[in-house]
Design a binder for these strands. Structure first.
Lengths: 192, 192
DNA sequence: TTAACTGCTTGACAATTGTCAAGACATTTC
DNA sequence: GAAATGTCTTGACAATTGTCAAGCAGTTAA
């Protein structure tokens, strides 16, 4: 499991043996059954975890309703970025949608890595660049005008996710309600 | 003008004299009158520029209409991130809304800095982290349900911008049309 | 097995937002 | 200065989306 994480980091920038070993000593693995809350609103997100296997979603409450902000499957980093970055309690929840295995590193350990291995900043930079890039793509979806365009965008960008996620969550992710998504789908799949 | 940029980078992480001098040798300053197109759809964004003074917006075309994606005033980085990151032609335009002075560094020079000064990766990482954080806040706005909530969010987060930007652009930024924004404003300011 | 619950769909209707058109006013251009 | 252009507003109406309610199939729990 740790090897997956190491491989991913090496893919961003080749790491020295010393750095690799240091990371190995810091990483821990955790298993969580489906429907486990990993982070609650009001908590500070103190570690960065990668999904080794499984599926996770993050969401927050707006006007009393859950708004799904992101789905994270294998290889993706699950972190409530605003909280992790600001070091303050965030308002995001993170929960598992399937049985999930995570590989995690503590915030303090990440900072140590940045200090002890300057080249780890290259990896940190590239990872944040990638996360930012993905976030920009998601934002593009939210700027689509119609429910159908949003659904189409989702189909194109997450073709595999539809089988694993309930439509209720997809709907709030796309910024519409469950019923609208249902209608858009039936309309869309008639003509495509 | 360059001092502003240097000060900003020092604020992210103190830089050595050598790094500072290297950066000074790479930066150039450009002035652009109001309504200048700085980047066109289909071009690769090959440099990172900071607004030293003035105001800029980025936008793209969706279904034939301009969608404003961001406003950037003093101290902010103007870069079409998706294009800069992927090194491919993007679909964003960038234009000045006021007479603007920019301090710019070329993509290749940035990469040289990353290689020659490993500690520059700390600055790069922190800058991207900050940009990402700001982008996440903007995304939160897009997930607001009603036009009024979006307008309120804009008022709270960019209180000074409303005097400098035409409402047409604010409207597309908020994901609504001009008329709706106008109505929301008249409604909102009656009761607040 | 029955009961409760979840996920998804559909219908009727309400609320919100978009579209098209027009006009007032300010600003720019020639 | 006159004309053209741009900004903002308002009205009437259309389209889209949300809300509330109900129902059905499949799953879970007792």
């Amino acid at each position: 499991m740790i090897d997956k994480l190491i491989a991913r980091l090496n893919g961003l920038h080749p790491m020295s043996e010393a750095l690799t070993e240091r990371i190995r000593s810091m990483v821990w693995i955790t298993d969580h059954p489906k429907k486990t809350i990993l982070l609650k609103e009001g908590e500070v997100n103190n570690h960065i975890c990668m999904v080794a296997s499984g599926l996770v979603r993050s969401y927050y409450i707006n006007e009393g309703k859950e708004i799904t902000s992101r789905f994270m499957d294998e290889g993706f980093i699950i972190t409530s970025w605003i909280s992790f970055y600001t070091r303050k309690p965030g308002n995001e929840f993170i929960e598992t949608l399937e049985d999930t295995t995570l590989t995690c590193v503590h915030y303090n350990d990440i900072q140590k890595l940045y200090e002890e291995f300057p080249e780890f900043n290259i990896i940190g930079r590239k990872q944040v660049e990638y996360s930012f890039y993905m976030a920009e793509l998601r934002t593009r979806m939210l700027r689509k005008n119609t429910a159908e365009e949003k659904y189409k965008f989702f189909l194109e960008n997450h073709p595999n996710l539809l089988q694993r996620v309930s439509l209720k969550h997809v709907a709030t992710y796309l910024g519409m309600n469950e019923e609208t998504l249902s209608r858009v789908r039936s309309q869309y799949h008639k003509t495509h």
